[in-house]
Design a binder for these strands. Sequence first.
DNA 1: ACGAGATCCTGTCAGC
DNA 2: TGCTGACAGGATCTCG
Length: 281
Amino acid sequence: MPELPEVETIVRTLRPQVESRRISRVLTPLPRVLQAGAELLPALEGGVIRAVRRRAKLLLLEVEAREPLLMAFHLKMTGRFFVYPEGTEPLKHTRLIVDLEGVSAEEGASLSRLFFDDVRTFGYCRVMRPADLAAWGFYAALGPEPLETPAKELAARFAARSGAIKAVLLDQGVVAGVGNIYADESLFRAGVAPSARASGLAPERLLALASALQAVLRQSIDECGSSIRDYRDARGNAGAFQNSFAVYGKKGRNCSVCGTALVSSRVAGRGTTHCPRCQRG
DNA sequence: ACGAGATCCTGTCAGC
DNA sequence: TGCTGACAGGATCTCG
């Protein structure tokens, strides 16, 4: 399930493979994956990919065509990217294909196919003009990037919410890019119970949580993300941060700090694992 | 403003 | 072995 560190890793591994290459054609084996902008597909053809970047969990391809265009991808749980040689047939779960020509930093001059694969088909792509981003409600409502925002400011945003702190972390409008894994892991590191009311937590504890969140995200990016089952980067490599999990997916195992059995529950509709002794409300 | 629950989807795994 | 049902989960929607 690609969250911020996974999407960041995909961006970094995709960039040298596709940047400055020309789009010859875009195909949609699963048409509904294109959530918006079908009418702009013809305008993409002949355009050049000028940048690959990330905002929250979105991967953005900036295309210089007759006019500037954007392809915005959300990978949801099982979205993946991979660059295949010319002539490769779509795979079972290939949902969108960008045919590329021209020179890449890595492959030199060649023809390639960028596949967007997605087993569960929750992922999507939107093609739009840059000016349309602000009009896209989801994008406009995104909170700040956690690694580009002072922990103090993040803590203040948490404090303004009255719901369960885990629900607050998962709210993309409060802070962008956090999903289930990094919510559970940062709550553990900060010693905060997932169901604690955000506004009821002392300021210093919220600050500790914000700092823990940043540390967890940075460490995971350094380790190329977490591979639970599906996640791979744009070269097909798994991440390593799953080896550093303290609580996520570890129900019943012993807490690495105090030895108490980790407890699973549902908070904000998500599977949640925490240490009942180390994490307090 | 918040929470709870349903929805979308398919591969995997536990249990019988 | 083969079936069934539970489960995973981001974002959106409806209802209370």
